[in-house]
Design a protein around this nucleic acid. Structure first.
Lengths: 270, 270
DNA sequence: CCATGAAGTTGATCCATGTCAACACCAATA
DNA sequence: TATTGGTGTTGACATGGATCAACTTCATGG
């Protein structure tokens, strides 16, 4: 079973290990880990897309482990945990969030297959947010110390990490800037469409509450806006299913949160 | 004149080169550049604070150049410029901003002495924002390719860069989360106080308009809130001069944008 | 020293979005 | 199939902060 070829659909069916963390349990999930075969993984060009040679990737492989599946609602890590690793999502999806002084949850980002998370914990050396699975999810684990050591040797890897972190900076800066509710939601939908690569038919893994929290809106506002977008024939919604009809119309609204790059690439975070 | 000892006050008086870019001019400023003596610069522990040996710093010195002074209102770089270097502020201050589709300015960050800027341009390979001097300003230039090559050799430098970028991630994520006007302004004031190290007497280099834009508020709201804070005896304001009186009171409001670190450190961005 | 314009303040009003409340829908389970 | 609880939708109302407008203060140059 190790070193097998995995594409998104296959991986979704992989079921290693026994039952895992339960919803909301504080218990840290202990899971069977496999060596990962990055060379044959269909996600490499997503998670570490920037010009690694197959030799570089082989070296990377030696430090990467697979972890999962994580049940929907289980935590990958918690706010305050000491920082150990960067994670790459293989299947499923995660949200990262933190709790404010009043105990209210603020969603900081969504992490879809091929995307990395955990970079914000490097500096303070502990996780500044929690990460919870939005569906059954498996991830690759990249132990940070080993990753950093490897990046010291493999210049392509160092460059890749710097670019990914830089990209994440742009994404949060963009979200931080001032936009109306309409603009943020349109931008969000476009970004999800772009990241899932599903074209215009998309499935929102996360509940309205999380979308709202991420976009700093009330769930009711998200609901109403989706209804309005539908009425204006920009899209069709039914619960988690969304079909984007008028992409240009949405782009006009949202300016889209996409980040133009002068090289051709795809991947992301949040 | 090169390799002189510079502390903040001395450096502020250094006046190399002739007249520079005029307010708002599109022309790129061409300025005399000096080699920088990082070893004797009082800002090293601010701009690159994380455990570099004096040998590491000497290597760094070989690629760093000083640029300035930049007149108030002059640009260090413009949105769309190709990415060449990371900058460290020596004296003065900068704001980074971008223009939206309607030509309105959005301030993305303020950059005070000892802080670095430019990391967000690594990924897309061009500047995603413009940087303008808020006062007469001089900076150190760290050519990125050389910096990356050096980080490949000097592991302490790679680690430092990763941590700084990670920290910036946390900062923008924090700003992106939902806060009331009151919370954001209180947090902002505390962050400025912390970063300037001036204690409770601080001088806001940036005009109200820029503070408002950064915090996604109207200038009138900033004005009114400052008036209210003063009335509630949290602080005293007179134009650009602010004296923080009740730090704890402000922290209660703002939660402060500070980022706790498990090592002892100071420095930042934005 | 005054004139001028930019920066900041203050007041009156408006509106986008939040909040509260009731209801509808769907998925899971018995 | 009926029950139930979570998730999503819709309506009525409240409000924080934006907008518009008038005025004050300060810095600057003639």
């Amino acid at each position: 079973m190790p070193n097998q070829v995995l594409d998104k659909r296959q991986a979704a069916r992989v079921n290693i290990g026994e039952s895992l963390g339960m919803k909301g349990s504080r218990k840290v999930v202990n899971i069977t880990r496999l060596r990962q075969a990055c060379r044959t993984c269909s996600l490499v060009e997503l998670c570490l897309p920037m010009g690694l040679t197959s030799d570089d990737i082989q070296q990377l492989e030696s430090i990467v482990k697979v972890k999962g599946p994580l049940e929907k609602g289980a935590h990958l890590f918690r706010e305050g945990d000491s920082f150990q690793a960067i994670f790459a999502v293989r299947t499923g999806a995660l949200k990262t969030y933190s709790l404010d002084a009043d105990g209210r949850e603020h969603v900081l980002g969504f992490h879809l297959p091929g995307e990395l998370l955990g970079f914000d914990a490097i500096y303070p050396r502990y996780n500044r947010c929690s990460a919870m699975a939005l569906a059954d999810t498996s991830v690759c684990v990249l132990p940070f110390n080993q990753l950093a050591d490897l990046a010291q040797k493999v210049s392509g890897l160092q460059a890749t990490i710097l670019r990914l972190m830089s990209k994440n900076l742009s994404i949060s800066a963009n979200l931080a800037t001032d936009h109306t509710a309409e603009e943020r939601l349109a931008g969000f939908l476009l970004s999800i469409a772009q990241r899932t690569g599903e074209g215009s038919e998309l499935r929102l893994v996360m509940p309205r509450r999380d979308i709202a929290s991420y976009l700093r809106l009330a769930t009711e506002t998200v609901s109403r806006l989706l209804a309005r977008f539908q009425q204006e024939e920009l899209l069709e919604v039914h619960r988690k299913r969304v079909r984007l009809i008028d992409l240009d119309g949405l782009r006009d609204l949202g300016g889209s949160f996409e980040i133009a790059d002068r090289t051709r690439q795809r991947s992301g975070y949040q």
